[in-house]
Amino acid sequence: MPKLLHLDSSVLGPHSVSRQVSAAVVERLRQTASGLEITYRDLSAAPLPHLSGAHLAAAQGISPSDPVIQQDLATAQAVLEEFLAADIVVIGAPMYNFSIPSQLKAWIDRIAVPGKTFKYGPQGPEGLSGGKRVIVAISRGGYYGADTPMAAFEHLETYLRGVFSFLGVTDIEFIAAEGIQVSPEHREQAVKSALEAASSLRAA
């Protein structure tokens, strides 16, 4: 039975474009895959704490005495296992100040684990997460394409491509809703185009 991990990171709740598009992606895949097992994690409603010195010490084998850190480490292990088990990962990722939400960065910090999702060898880093399909629904207030004046400020899609490539993922797709803050008309058209792209994704 294929497993899908669905993540949202927007703080805007029902007003979020990235949430709307990521939900459409999941629905499309659910319709095309019989028995698809879906796990959902809302990184805004239940944010993961950012890494601290105590987390890094625990990673080096030092057992934490703080029960809060112990609980957080257990959550981090569950997050990592969700990612490792997933055949498909769908992420809703809005652009905040030219990059990803900090809530999504905290999740990435919990899945980018040496020996689990990547390793270093004689030839340098090697991703261990190949075979997964990753689909990212991104939303941006303006226009940041390669042919735009703001292209140099685009650190959302480029960052996520880099991270998942480092982890060994080669099957990664982006569905973008751009210019949603330019005007109501631009927002409507951007959402429409993104939803159409979601509805025409290849089968799971």
Rank of each mutant, 00 (worst) to 15 (best):
L7A: 06
D8R: 08
S9T: 04
S10C: 04
V11A: 14
V11T: 12
G13C: 04
P14I: 03
P14G: 06
H15S: 14
S16H: 02
S16E: 07
V17Y: 04
V17F: 01
V17I: 14
Q20V: 04
A23M: 02
A24V: 01
V25P: 05
V25E: 00
V26L: 09
V26Y: 07
V26H: 05
E27F: 06
R30H: 07
E37P: 00
I38P: 05
T39E: 12
T39I: 11
T39V: 14
Y40H: 15
R41K: 09
L43P: 09
A45I: 00
A45T: 05
P47V: 05
P49W: 11
P49E: 05
G53C: 03
A54T: 13
H55G: 06
H55C: 05
H55P: 02
A58S: 10
A59Q: 12
A59T: 01
A59H: 12
Q60G: 14
G61W: 12
I62N: 01
S65C: 01
V68C: 00
I69N: 01
Q70Y: 04
Q70M: 09
D72Q: 15
V79G: 06
F83G: 01
L84S: 00
A85Q: 15
A86E: 03
V90G: 01
V90Q: 10
I91D: 07
G92T: 02
G92V: 03
P94W: 09
M95H: 08
N97Q: 13
I100N: 00
P101C: 07
S102R: 06
L104M: 03
L104R: 07
K105Q: 13
A106E: 08
A106C: 07
D109C: 04
R110Y: 02
R110T: 04
A112E: 07
P114W: 00
G115A: 09
K116Q: 15
T117G: 03
G121P: 02
P122Q: 12
Q123D: 12
G124Q: 08
P125Q: 10
G130E: 10
G130S: 13
G131I: 11
K132G: 11
R133Y: 09
V134Y: 04
I135P: 10
A137N: 10
I138K: 01
R140I: 01
R140Y: 02
G145N: 11
G145F: 09
A146W: 01
D147F: 05
P149I: 03
P149A: 03
F153A: 13
E154A: 12
H155E: 02
L156T: 15
T158A: 12
T158S: 15
T158H: 09
Y159N: 11
Y159K: 06
L160G: 08
G162R: 10
G162D: 07
S165I: 02
S165T: 15
G168E: 11
T170D: 14
A176N: 08
A176L: 07
E178D: 13
E178A: 13
G179H: 08
Q181K: 09
P184I: 07
P184S: 04
P184Y: 08
P184G: 07
P184H: 09
H186W: 01
R187H: 14
K192D: 12
S193V: 09
S193T: 14
A194D: 06
L195F: 05
A198N: 06
S199W: 04
R202L: 13
R202K: 14
A204G: 15
